[in-house]
Nucleic acid binder design. Structure first.
Lengths: 207, 207
DNA sequence: TCAAATAGTGAATTAGCGTTCAGTAATCAT
DNA sequence: ATGATTACTGAACGCTAATTCACTATTTGA
């Protein structure tokens, strides 16, 4: 029984190592251009061994993406929760999104390419999970907006539309930054984003 | 010589038919899950015949996406150009984006899935073109912002950031609409988008 | 120490599809 | 009408890479 725990630990270590190598390779070359052989040799195993850890290539990929995304959302939520004021929460939301992107360029590139989000049949599972996670995240942001309205920090309006808006702006900045991979860190734009979001760009003084 | 023109016409017709069928099938099943055999039979030809029109599967796909996107951007620009006032241009931009999405759900789904944007080597050509087109489009939107600033309709600020913002919001709304394919037409949100964009969501009265 | 069980190996199997090409049909020019 | 040219066909080929499995190595427990 003692031993089975050590075993379990070692199993997890190997599994994690495989996932981590897989992430690198998938990120660099996309799902379809990555072979099991590559992943195997990068993680120091033979091809067949991978099948003791994962059902197959598709599963391996799904698990890798899925766990990574989970970590991302939970990081973001944690950061945001630590803030008190609605506007600080908003700023933190932007900042932690950008943070993740800057620290996971290759992975984000993989997501942007979107490759492997629709692998036949089984692949839909990943797609569905990602969508569910995203919808859930929108709900979370919506909560921030609602809180902002309660505390008279934000205009009253449909909090869901506000959530779409903010996430859209974030994505747009991140996307462009990825495309034209620049010298300037993305984080520099944090206040620019939250400013535009809060104040808009129009000049008319209508409240 | 007369004849060669008729020939050319017929050739184009067939080519268009193939592209149109290919669009449907690719949109439904993605690049990798679509076979040349399917496209051939859908357009009433034998497999080999496709190779008289296109170099291969990848080229066929690239051409299909590429031409479709070209049409999209040109439609959008035309609509926008017809408007005079900056705010009308902005609203029209949103509206025509949404319009395209509503009329090309399957194609947009294909783009969202992003499948086939990074086919090895050659595929990069498509990716690069799409990126270039997008950057170009951002430039176009930037122009609208600049115009808005000149005519004292918009706050002064970095027009590029404004462009990212607007396109981001548009994308976010469209994206969510696609995911949760709803009864309500996306076009209903046009004024909501331009409102938030112009006025922001914050309550503070700072100009 | 030595079976039994477990983990790891990698060559061989297998399947799917893009692509080719020898052959057939259709069209054209004279 | 008929030979030449062009268009079309679809079975056969070939390649790639995921998956399997008979075998070897390692670890475990008595």
């Amino acid at each position: 029984m003692e031993k089975s725990k050590r075993k379990e630990m070692e199993f997890q270590l190997r599994r994690t190592e495989i996932l981590s190598q897989a992430e690198k390779i998938f990120a660099a070359k996309g799902f379809h251009n990555t072979t099991m052989a590559e992943i195997a040799s990068a993680s120091g195993f033979a091809t067949g061994t991978l099948y003791q850890f994962f059902e197959g290539k598709e599963t391996l990929y799904n698990v890798m993406v899925s766990e990574k995304i989970d970590r991302m959302y939970s990081e973001i939520r944690n950061s945001v929760s630590r803030e008190e004021k609605p506007t600080d929460k908003i700023e933190k939301l932007v900042e932690s999104h950008f943070h993740f992107v800057e620290n996971n360029v290759d992975f984000c590139d993989l997501l942007i390419r979107g490759e492997g989000l629709t692998l036949s049949d089984k692949g839909t599972i990943l797609r569905d999970k990602l969508i569910a996670d995203y919808v859930n995240h929108i709900g979370f942001v919506e909560g921030i907006m609602r809180f902002g309205m309660e505390t008279r920090t934000l205009k009253s309006g449909d909090p869901r539309m506000m959530a779409y808006t903010l996430l859209g702006i974030i994505r747009s900045f991140f996307y462009y930054w990825m495309l034209t991979n620049q010298d300037a860190p993305l984080s520099d734009k944090v206040s620019c984003v939250s400013d535009i979001f809060l104040k808009g760009v129009g000049l008319e003084l209508t409240a």
